[in-house]
Write a protein that binds this DNA or RNA. Structure first.
Lengths: 99, 99
DNA sequence: CAAATATATCGACTTTTCCCGATATATAGA
DNA sequence: TCTATATATCGGGAAAAGTCGATATATTTG
C-alpha cells in the first residue's frame, strides 16, 4: 500500500466518519450491544449509520482495510471491523517525518 | 478547507514529491541559487523537476496552497512557494486526535 | 508602449472515484 | 439439503480529478 493510496482512503467524508465512529463502538453502535464489541463492529451496523447501500459500505470498508486503518475478523456470517490504532500513529509520523 | 480536501491534496504522487522537494530547496532546486531561497522556490523551478506542463504544475501548487501545506509569495513576475511546517503538524495531530 | 517572460486560468478530453442495483458466496439453522 | 441472512463482488452511469494546449494576466525591460 503506497502513500497515495493511504491518503486516497482518507479522501472521502463517509470513510472518515466510519473511522471516527469506530473510535467509540459502544456509543455509536448501540445496536450491537448484545454481541459485544471485542472484534469490532459488523458491516450491517455500519451500513445502518452510513446512508449508503450495502455494496458501497462493503467496498469502503475494504478500502480502509487495504490502507491499514481497520482490521477485519470473520465470525460466522458476520465480518467485524475494528480500528488499528498503530496505523494512525504510522501515518501521523509519516506526515511529520517523511512528508 | 475541510479534512477531505486536505487528504485529497495529498492523494497524488507528484504533489507529495513537491512537498518533499520543498523540504530541501537548496538541494533540490540548485538552479535557483542566485535568487536565494528565502521566499521559497518559484514555479518554473518546480516545473522543471516535475515532469508536467506549466498549467498542471501551477494548479497542483494552488491545490497544495489551498490545503495549507505551502504558502505563496509574489515577487515581481515570480511566485515563490514554501512549506508551512505548522500545517504538517496540524494534520499529523488531526490523525492521532480527531480521526 | 511593445515585447518578453512568469504564472494563472480556461476548455476539453481521459482516467479515476462515487455509488448504485444485481448477483455471487459464505454461513447458519430448519 | 433448502432457505434465510450477512457480506463481497461485478458492471455500469454520473461526477470528480488528472492533464494537456491555448489563452489571459502581471510584471519587467527596452
Amino acid at each position: 500500500m503506497d502513500q497515495v493510496d493511504i491518503f486516497k482512503a482518507l479522501s472521502n467524508k463517509t470513510r472518515l466518519q466510519m473511522l471516527e465512529w469506530l473510535k467509540e463502538p459502544e456509543l455509536n453502535f448501540p445496536g450491537q450491544k448484545e454481541y459485544g464489541y471485542a472484534e469490532g463492529v459488523c458491516v450491517g451496523q455500519i451500513q445502518a449509520k452510513a446512508n449508503l447501500t450495502q455494496s458501497t459500505v462493503s467496498e469502503y470498508l475494504s478500502i480502509l482495510q487495504r490502507a491499514g486503518f481497520i482490521k477485519a475478523t470473520r465470525k460466522g456470517q458476520w465480518t467485524y471491523y475494528k480500528r488499528d490504532e498503530a496505523a494512525f500513529e504510522r501515518v501521523s509520523k509519516l506526515i511529520t517525518s517523511t512528508l
